[in-house]
Design a protein around this nucleic acid. Structure first.
Length: 566
RNA sequence: GUAUCAUUAGCUCAGUGGAUAGAGCGUUCGGCUCCGAACCGAGAGGCCACGGGUUCAAUUCCCGUAUGAUACACCA
């Protein structure tokens, strides 16, 4: 039992008809730490007990037993403030970290539950650009967060590996393409001819007609069309995998759109059988006017399938395959309506799990001078960004730590860490104007700051010598404010992981690691670790060890490497 | 037109139905003979968009307005 639980226990004994869980969740950490380590506000009890909150606080505090580890209880207005015995507090939290090390913070909160996470999902044959970054890193972080708290995550890269862009690409390749150029420049060359196609098609609409023809050939199983299609897919995957490798990202499944080609007919039949399919303007739709939504398009006038058809089929397939408790889609906010529509169709089909489908939206990325567009070539390529970041990291290393071993690898870790961290720093919903300078800022609340703190802690531990990391310490020596603050942040880490999962918000973790680093850097600044007397030195080394361990674990959950030196 | 999302310090953003609204960047100032200065500290900087409502209590919840972003039929 930890502090909060003991306090909740003592409080609920002193309050008539108390709901212990409710009391537990009401216990807060005071904004101003001079008001104690934990606080219980009594406002909510006023209605039930029909007394003034300050009076209630006073009565409860007089009636309650002092929980273990609490040395003082004080009533200020409607608050009951608890002052922890710092030695006990520090000991409880540090011992827990030492026992579990990198596992600290992980829990079995979601034990036995499966969560399918659909993220990244780029369109094949188009370059991986800045617009894909968010889904990719947010999805990956959520994947790790859910795994850490006991869920079984299934990561799916729902590749956009089918559709009209291939018809266009085949036309473009046959007209302007060159095998050697494609093999040499792979996706860049594909992208070049794709952009050219759109330019030319503006003048010459017959090209679009031709592209549709090739798509039909693909659908009919034409060998030439399918060979080209496979080739384009392979070329794209080569680039995607290179980027995923650099970003530390893996998927459990790469089943993309083409995988559902032969599974949609049955789903269309099912929609028809259940009486949901109606005809409108030649297309087949599910009418959703009753729910104040535009119709969900299932089949085109020419009988072709559409985005919702594929998503509905995929959801049904995933439920059968993974028996998910939640199926989560990490996509931009502008797809909100699309998801609301087909989620509704799943519900109307009578699937009781329709409520387990979750759209996790994030804000738009723009370039400041207009929306990103692959068609017009108005994009910033992911690889260029990663390279700039790594280059900047290398420059700084050259300047600050030129004798570092393994500089190349560390520049990669720091540069890419900066990019990932930057994306996971704010709530998802915020729109982002792409700003390379900001992304490559290495000062303040950034990835490199966290990595620096980690490297610094590692450096201290290295100098201390491994044998000095002795966990049999006198915890009372760490009662100073800076040390206690560090422990306070450490203590909140497990619940932050859970909070992040409930909100589908990696930034909860990101910001908590920042808070840990800030607390530690202050501690580091205020205290000499290695220069202190034997017992104190032991205690401070242990604290440093705990911090290092949790930073490492937090960063890896976000998908960021933590070098020991930088 | 309908819908979704947003609006908090110069900028980028946290935050909570309740005790004095916080951080980073930028800015001004201070701190390396000392465990890593990619660090730490201090200062300046706020009608929490506006108007109503609910509540003992609203920056936080609800409604409206304004502003901005986005989506809305055969692309994904």
């Amino acid at each position: 039992m930890d502090f909060k639980e003991r306090i909740a226990e003592a409080l609920s004994k002193a309050i008539a008809d108390a709901d212990k869980n409710e009391i537990y969740s009401s216990i807060e950490i005071p904004s101003d730490l001079s008001k104690g380590d934990f606080a219980f506000p009594c406002f909510k009890l006023a209605k039930v007990l029909r007394k003034a909150p300050p009076l209630i606080a006073k009565e409860i505090s007089e009636k309650m037993d002092k929980p273990d580890g609490i040395e003082k209880i004080e009533v200020v207005n409607a608050y009951i403030n608890f002052y922890a015995d710092k030695s006990v507090f520090i000991k409880e939290i540090l011992v827990r970290v030492f026992e579990r090390k990198e596992e600290y913070g992980k829990s079995d909160y979601g034990k036995g539950k499966n969560i399918v996470i659909d993220y990244s999902s780029p369109n094949v044959a188009k370059p991986f650009h800045i617009g894909h970054l968010r889904s990719t890193v947010i999805g990956n972080a959520l994947y790790n967060i859910f795994n850490a708290i006991g869920y079984k995550s299934v990561g799916i890269n729902h590749l956009g590996d089918w559709g009209t862009q291939f018809g266009k690409l085949i036309v473009a390749y046959k007209k302007w393409g060159d095998k050697e150029a494609v093999e040499r420049d792979d996706i860049k060359e594909l992208s070049r001819i794709y952009v050219k196609f759109h330019e030319e098609a503006k003048e010459n609409p017959a090209l679009d007609e031709e592209a549709r023809g090739w798509l039909v050939k693909m659908q009919q199983g034409d060998n030439e069309a399918l060979d080209l299609w496979r080739w384009f897919v392979d070329i794209s995957m080569k680039e995607f995998n290179r980027i995923y490798g650099r970003l530390n990202i893996k998927f459990d499944s790469y089943k993309g759109e083409s995988f559902y080609n032969d599974k949609m007919a049955a789903v269309v039949d099912e929609i028809k059988e259940k009486g949901l399919l109606t005809e409108s303007e030649g297309a087949r739709i599910v009418d959703l006017s009753e729910f104040n939504m535009p119709p969900c398009l299932i089949l085109r006038r020419d009988g072709g399938t559409l985005y919702p058809t594929r998503d509905i089929s995929a959801a049904i397939y995933r439920k059968k395959t993974y028996d998910f408790d939640k199926c989560v889609y990490i996509t931009a906010l502008d797809q909100n309506l699309h998801f609301a529509q087909w989620f509704k169709v799943i519900e109307l089909l009578g699937y009781e799990w329709s409520g387990d489908l979750v759209h996790v939206p994030f804000g738009l990325v723009s370039l400041g001078d207009g929306k990103l567009s692959t068609r017009s070539g108005h994009v910033v390529l992911m690889e260029d960004i990663l390279n700039s970041a790594v280059e900047k990291a290398a420059t700084i290393i050259e300047e600050k730590n030129p004798n570092l071993d393994n500089k190349k690898k560390i520049a990669e870790d720091v540069g890419i860490g900066a990019v990932i961290f930057n994306d996971l720093y704010n709530s998802r919903i915020k729109n982002v104007v792409f700003d390379l300078g900001k992304m490559l800022n290495f000062d303040g609340e950034t990835g490199p700051y966290v990595q620096y703190t980690h490297a610094r802690a590692c450096s201290v531990l290295r100098k201390a010598g491994v044998s000095d990391v002795d966990f049999d310490i006198d915890f009372s020596l760490l009662r100073d404010e800076a040390s206690v603050d560090v422990c306070r942040v450490l203590s909140e880490y497990p619940e932050k992981l859970i909070e992040a999962s409930e909100k589908y918000e990696p930034y909860i973790v990101t910001r908590h690691i920042i808070a840990l680093c800030q607390a530690f850097n202050k501690f580091y600044h205020d205290n000499s670790i290695l220069g202190s007397d034997t017992e104190l030195r032991k205690a401070r080394i242990a604290l440093t060890y705990a911090v290092k361990t949790v930073i490492y674990s937090g960063l890896s959950i976000l998908g960021i490497n933590a070098p020991r030196e930088m």
